[in-house]
Design a protein around this nucleic acid. Structure first.
Lengths: 179, 179
DNA sequence: GTTATGCATTCATCTAGATGAAGAAATGAA
DNA sequence: TTCATTTCTTCATCTAGATGAATGCATAAC
């Protein structure tokens, strides 16, 4: 995961808020969708589907931003829950913080570039979900985000990968045995 | 699908190329990944997975752009095939056509905004793949892209949804019977 | 210490969708 | 028109992963 801090116009004057582990920053159904920049800590976004099951859309450790982009951009109802997996320091933005008129041209280009990078990552996510078995998605996850398994429980990695914790457990024991 | 023509600096001087239905514009493994703007016609991008199965990443009808963003942005090997589903008129761009220094500030902001919209669409795609059964993904597809079923065969819709043509056929007959 | 709550593992069963084969319907070329 | 090719549908079988339950293991609260 690459550093996305530059995507927002964050400087020393910006107000940082403290939240405890477990704090829910945004609920599905909220009237407005906000954007959260993680200065310190770890947060995640997830949906709860029609059967009550959780699916993690993304993790956001230090310097990442997280938002329900679909809700913000298309005025859809907010679908994503966002909560803290660790005690965190968060900067909260309203809609459209990315395209402020007083940004310099260079800043605009930077923002566009960083959005493009995230598009690339999401493209990969879609291709993995469609074309790779769970075990490949897991090993790719470990390669790409080597620090996360130390910070989040297995069951959350499972729901990020699109499988159940039991299935991930089975995959892990299979990998361990084959070594 | 919203109009993405403005994302590129397309004017009358730009060279348009003609391609016939079936023409492959980009192969997985190609040395450079290009960006394709569809002036007329219909193209698609897709991967072929380790078992030889096709998975369509996206369709691009008139005014859409298509590219292997991951390959372009992270210098990864090209994974996406791109080919013509109809006779098409295409404008081909090289890497980084979105962030040219001579773009105006307004153009930059527009480009960033359009990238953001596409992020919103991809977010939805991931959430649907993870959290919704195939039948819901199909009805959402019909709602969102009502013109595409008339232009592409069922089997391609199936591989876009992440299921086999047989499974889609079963879903369709189930829907037909329940009416 | 004891009790509780959450997490990971294992197993037995179930199911959505994959796979493979066959036939019917549509499309296209000669 | 005929013949070939592709697409769609149906069915029988198979499998990856879901579901649900039981067990063991932590960490935390009392």
């Amino acid at each position: 995961m690459e550093n996305l801090s530059k995507i927002l116009d964050i400087d020393h004057r910006t107000e940082v808020k403290q939240f405890q582990k477990g704090k829910i920053l945004q609920h599905a159904g909220d009237a407005i969708a906000q954007t959260f920049y993680v200065k310190k800590g770890l947060i995640r976004s997830y949906i709860i589907d029609s059967k009550g099951k959780e699916h993690i859309f993304m993790f956001a450790p230090e310097n990442w931003i997280i938002a329900d982009v679909e809700a913000i951009e298309f005025n859809e109802p907010v679908k994503l829950f966002i909560d803290c997996l660790e005690d965190s320091e968060i900067i909260i933005f309203d809609k459209d913080c990315l395209f402020k008129a007083d940004f310099s041209k260079e800043k605009m280009a930077e923002n566009a570039q960083l959005l493009y990078r995230r598009l690339g990552k999401l493209q990969r996510r879609v291709l993995m979900l469609m074309g790779s078995p769970a075990i490949d998605r897991y090993t790719y996850f470990l390669d790409t985000y080597p620090e996360l398994p130390n910070r989040v429980p297995q069951r959350m990695i499972a729901t990020y990968l699109g499988i159940t914790p039991q299935a991930l457990s089975t995959i892990r024991s299979k990998i361990a045995r084959s070594k």
